[in-house]
Each structure stands twice: as structure tokens, then as C-alpha cells.
Amino acid sequence: MAKDVKSPCVSLCKLKHEVCTGCGRTRDEIKDWKSMKRKEQLHTVELAAKRMKALKKK
């Protein structure tokens, strides 16, 4: 069985323009996390990391 994907949540939740400034996920990604398949979670983690990198540049 495949390993579970660790949520990028860091318990510093604050949404700015529908994106959490703590983890980089969108409101919908946070809401849907538990029902996502492993592949979707991995993709979400990648997108969240890119968003966090972009947020830190601002």
C-alpha cells in the first residue's frame, strides 16, 4: 500500500485571496484534502509549494 501524503498544513491558517498564507493551499484544496486520491494530494503539495515560494518573493 502506498504511503499517505503528509498535509502541508503548518497550523498557521490565514486566507489571502483564497490561498492559505501558512501552507499555500487554496480554500477548496484544504476542504477536499481528505477525499483526494494520493496522486491529487501530491499534485496539491507541489502547487502549494510553488504558491508559497511566490508569496515569499512579494
Rank of each mutant, 00 (worst) to 15 (best):
1 M>Q: 09
1 M>W: 06
3 K>R: 13
5 V>Q: 01
5 V>F: 00
7 S>N: 04
7 S>W: 01
8 P>F: 01
9 C>R: 05
9 C>N: 04
9 C>L: 03
10 V>S: 14
10 V>R: 15
10 V>C: 13
11 S>I: 10
11 S>F: 13
11 S>P: 03
11 S>D: 14
12 L>A: 14
14 K>N: 11
15 L>G: 02
15 L>H: 01
17 H>Y: 14
18 E>T: 13
19 V>W: 04
21 T>N: 04
23 C>R: 00
24 G>M: 04
26 T>L: 09
27 R>W: 11
30 I>D: 10
32 D>G: 01
33 W>C: 04
33 W>Y: 02
34 K>E: 06
34 K>R: 07
35 S>D: 08
35 S>E: 09
36 M>V: 05
38 R>Y: 05
39 K>M: 10
39 K>E: 15
40 E>D: 10
40 E>G: 10
41 Q>Y: 01
41 Q>K: 15
41 Q>W: 00
42 L>A: 09
44 T>E: 08
45 V>G: 01
47 L>T: 14
47 L>E: 14
48 A>D: 06
48 A>K: 00
48 A>G: 11
48 A>T: 02
50 K>N: 08
51 R>P: 05
51 R>Q: 07
52 M>D: 04
54 A>F: 09
54 A>E: 15
54 A>G: 12
55 L>Y: 13
55 L>M: 15
55 L>D: 12
56 K>M: 06
56 K>I: 04
57 K>M: 12
57 K>T: 08
57 K>A: 14
58 K>I: 06
58 K>W: 09
